[in-house]
Design a protein around this nucleic acid. Structure first.
Length: 227
DNA sequence: GCCCAGGTGGGTA
DNA sequence: TACCCACATGGG
């Protein structure tokens, strides 16, 4: 992954869209809950579930840990696979309460690799969810690779699309400095771009700043034209 | 009515 | 390892 191209794309997106203010949550624990609930669904479906959990005072590790799984499931029906996700939330709360007394800050205040291994050990938390939690709840400098990231990089011709999660993450992280605020904003901007283009079934070359001419004049001046 | 949305775990070849 | 499938709502 080319450092100059990555930074160029970032600059173009940031100047076009501005800061995205991710993650939209009041507490780190709410980020962790949201990271599980958003698996495989659009964020708007998650918002109603988060609101219902908040109304019932369940956006707290101990409260979630103590709540019956079936009752929990009813609160999050809007997020698809709600029974599965209720089980995932309980698994996460079990780790945080039984091993960390519900103290999120202390849980994250360890080396990135150690926290990541703990998260990946929880049933229902895979690499993308673990990294979203590390970055947006714990402030750890890990680049989150999601479907949107793959689509954008793929359409720019930067990747083949067959790379593994770890390969893509390593490619980005080794090209950029380890910088949590940068990774935070970059991921959010890629998401925004993808929603404006890929998901709307719109070609990358219309309505997309990558092809509006901004790229052509970027300092690196080497971004390939979209197909 | 039909398709798909910010993933993960489990099963099979 | 590399697919394939279940999970099971809501909006376009």
């Amino acid at each position: 992954m080319d450092r100059a191209l990555l930074l160029c794309l970032y600059d173009v997106l940031y100047s076009h869209y501005g800061p995205q203010h991710w993650w939209p949550a009041k507490t780190p624990f709410e980020v962790m809950v949201g990271a599980i609930l958003t698996q495989g669904v659009a964020w708007r479906n998650v918002e109603t579930a988060i609101a219902r959990l908040e109304e019932s005072n369940l956006l707290d590790p101990r409260a979630l840990y103590a709540a019956p799984e079936d009752a929990l499931a009813e609160h999050i029906r809007s997020t698809l696979y709600y029974r599965t996700k209720a089980r995932k939330l309980k698994a996460m709360a079990t780790l945080l309460v039984e091993q960390w007394e519900g103290e999120i800050a202390r849980f994250f205040a360890r080396p990135t690799a150690v926290v990541r291994a703990d998260l990946l050990g929880v049933w229902g938390i895979g690499p993308e969810t673990a990294d979203a939690m590390l970055l947006y709840a714990g402030g750890h400098p890990v680049f989150v690779v999601d479907l949107y990231t793959r689509r954008i990089f793929g359409r720019l011709g930067w990747i083949t699309g067959r790379e593994s999660y770890a390969e893509l993450q390593h490619a980005v992280q080794s090209a950029l400095v380890a910088d949590a605020p940068l990774y935070n904003e970059y991921h959010a901007l890629l998401d925004r771009l993808a929603k404006d283009t890929c998901r709307a079934r719109r070609p990358l070359c219309s309505r997309c700043p990558v092809a509006t001419g901004a790229i052509v004049t970027c300092p690196a001046g080497r971004l390939p034209s979209p197909p």
